[in-house]
Amino acid sequence: MPHPSYLLKPEWVKTIRDTGAEAEKLAMLHPDQLKLVYEQGWFKFLVPKAYSGLQLPLPDMVRLEESLAWANGSLGWVVTLCSGAGWFGGFLSADVAPELLNNPALCLAGSGASTGTATITDGGYIINGTWKYASGAHHATHITANCIIKNGDEPVLDADGNELILPFIFDKKDVEIFPAWKYIGMMATGSDAYQVSNLFVKANRCFKIDPAYAVINEPLYKYPFLQLAEATLAANISGMAVHFLDLCGPLFDEKQLGKRQPGTYRDATKQLLDELTAKLNNTRAEFYRAVDASWQSGLTGPAGYLTEVSATSRKLAKTARESVDKLYPYCGLQAANPDTEISQTWRDLHTASQHSLLNSI
């Protein structure tokens, strides 16, 4: 299984990692990191080509996201979530999408939580609500949010009798962002909260995420959102785990040179690292086989293999967490020092892996 580094130029990795500590202090991506993201169009992975996006095939995009998360957890996460929101461009009304998405600095942030309301009014909706954890919010050009649709004081019901929930896209200037991210990892994601009050938006700022409602008739926008989200998040956690395991090797060698541990102990830790690296790589290969098969199935006929994508995404996330946790006790105090790269990687992985989408009993 190829190492995630093969998709990134060494100078890109250097820029990303050299600014990683400063990005944590800034609580958002560093300007040099953002410059690189814009130059490479990474926020536009899934934006339709019709709107100056890359519109990457899903397997290519997932591999790139794993590579970016390997370079730095916060950067990989922000690119994944913001480019994931760019996928909504395939569902936006054609009369508003070009205006919103043809922007070289495009970045869409948002939340999947349905903690807002959209009350129907003439020509559009009145939006009220507060949402948490919008990664990349500080450098976003637009913000997306899910809202419960209301007609007066009553919720509108869908065909199944449930409250109708639809996503909207707002201009950044119409949104108030406030501090909310106070966790041990992913500190440079700037995943703060936001709110809007009595905001009028036109009807064309509302869209529906459903293959039947795709405006851009391309396979990417027919792929189910659930498996797209599962695969992209699992790839991030995998990239962070590979980074952690990469750092363990030199750290264990340093301990050996210092003769601080008996030879049998050093041999045992090296063997454990080799075994866990092989296990993680085997799980990565299984995951990518499922992602590739689901994509090809969607291209050639009825979408299949989706259950395998869900299952292998969870398996990869679990294997990544367990591999890191088995090695952590042998890393010494460097792993507990918040100023070290290995600590940052550990903190990022354990924060990102709390995402409910990939946690199951």
Rank of each mutant, 00 (worst) to 15 (best):
L8P: 03
L8Q: 08
D18L: 12
A21D: 13
E22C: 05
A23Y: 14
L26F: 14
H30N: 04
H30S: 11
P31W: 10
Q33H: 06
L36A: 00
F43M: 11
P48D: 01
A50E: 03
G53I: 14
Q55I: 09
M61N: 06
V62R: 01
E65Y: 13
T80D: 06
A85N: 09
W87G: 14
S93K: 07
A97V: 13
N102V: 12
N103P: 00
C107M: 14
L108H: 08
G124I: 04
Y133E: 08
G136V: 12
A137I: 11
H139G: 05
T141L: 01
I165P: 13
I169L: 06
F170H: 05
D171G: 15
K182C: 13
Y183K: 13
M186R: 10
M186H: 15
M186E: 08
V201D: 01
D210W: 04
Y213T: 12
P219W: 13
F252D: 02
T264A: 06
Y265V: 01
L273Q: 08
E275I: 02
N281P: 03
T283C: 06
W295P: 07
S297G: 11
G301K: 05
P302Y: 11
A303G: 13
Y305I: 15
A317Y: 06
R321H: 12
D325C: 15
P329C: 11
P329Q: 02
L333P: 14
T340K: 04
E341C: 03
D348H: 04
T351E: 15
Q354E: 12
L358K: 04
S360T: 15
I361G: 03
I361N: 13
